[in-house]
Simulated scan of single mutants.
Amino acid sequence: MSGRALGHRIDERITLHYDTLPPQERRAADMLLAQLDDLATYRAAELASLAGVSKATMSRLFRSLGFADFDEVRDHLRGLRTAGEPRRTDGAPSLSGHAESEGEAIRYVLESAPIPEAVRLLAGAERILVVGWRNSYPVALHLREQLAQIHPSVSVGPQPGQTIGEELAGIGGADVVVAVGFRRRPAGFSAFVGEALRTGAAVIVFADPTGSAYLARATVPLECPVQGELAFDSYAAAMSLVSALADGVLESRGREARERASAIASAYDRLTEVE
Score class of each variant (00 low, 15 high):
residue 199 T to F: 06
residue 259 E to H: 10
residue 143 L to K: 03
residue 249 V to F: 01
residue 47 L to I: 15
residue 197 L to M: 12
residue 186 P to H: 09
residue 46 E to C: 00
residue 98 H to T: 14
residue 55 K to C: 00
residue 117 E to V: 00
residue 22 P to W: 06
residue 36 L to I: 13
residue 130 V to H: 02
residue 141 L to S: 10
residue 182 F to R: 01
residue 185 R to A: 14
residue 251 E to I: 11
residue 60 R to W: 03
residue 192 F to W: 14
residue 48 A to G: 06
residue 53 V to C: 06
residue 161 G to L: 09
residue 73 V to S: 07
residue 91 G to I: 09
residue 3 G to M: 09
residue 108 Y to M: 10
residue 81 R to Q: 13
residue 217 R to E: 15
residue 139 V to A: 06
residue 43 R to F: 12
residue 54 S to V: 05
residue 13 R to G: 05
residue 205 V to N: 03
residue 192 F to A: 02
residue 31 M to Y: 01
residue 110 L to I: 09
residue 230 L to V: 14
residue 165 G to L: 12
residue 248 G to P: 11
residue 125 A to D: 04
residue 236 A to Y: 04
residue 208 D to E: 07
residue 274 V to C: 00
residue 203 V to Q: 06
residue 151 H to Y: 07
residue 205 V to D: 02
residue 42 Y to T: 01
residue 189 F to C: 00
residue 20 T to Y: 05
residue 12 E to D: 13
residue 206 F to S: 09
residue 201 A to Q: 06
residue 178 V to K: 03
residue 204 I to F: 06
residue 8 H to K: 14
residue 115 I to S: 02
residue 83 A to S: 11
residue 256 E to L: 11
residue 58 M to G: 06
residue 170 G to R: 02
residue 169 A to S: 10
residue 55 K to F: 00
residue 215 L to E: 11
residue 54 S to E: 04
residue 206 F to V: 07
residue 208 D to S: 08
residue 180 V to W: 07
residue 38 D to Q: 12
residue 217 R to C: 00
residue 270 R to K: 12
residue 134 R to T: 07
residue 263 A to Y: 05
residue 108 Y to I: 00
residue 272 T to I: 00
residue 190 S to R: 13
residue 263 A to C: 01
residue 95 L to Q: 08
residue 94 S to T: 15
residue 257 A to K: 03
residue 141 L to Y: 13
residue 48 A to P: 03
residue 30 D to Y: 00
residue 140 A to P: 05
residue 54 S to R: 08
residue 254 G to M: 09
residue 168 L to M: 08
residue 16 L to H: 08
residue 31 M to H: 05
residue 258 R to P: 00
residue 254 G to L: 10
residue 184 R to Y: 08
residue 192 F to Y: 13
residue 17 H to I: 02
residue 210 T to P: 12
residue 219 T to D: 09
residue 33 L to Y: 01
residue 39 L to H: 05
residue 171 I to P: 00
residue 171 I to K: 04
residue 190 S to K: 11
residue 93 P to H: 09
residue 28 A to V: 04
residue 22 P to T: 07
residue 130 V to N: 01
residue 63 R to S: 11
residue 73 V to E: 04
residue 188 G to F: 13
residue 114 P to M: 09
residue 228 G to Q: 12
residue 265 A to L: 13
residue 93 P to Y: 07
residue 112 S to H: 15
residue 101 S to G: 06
residue 223 E to Y: 01
residue 191 A to N: 09
residue 49 S to N: 11
residue 68 A to H: 11
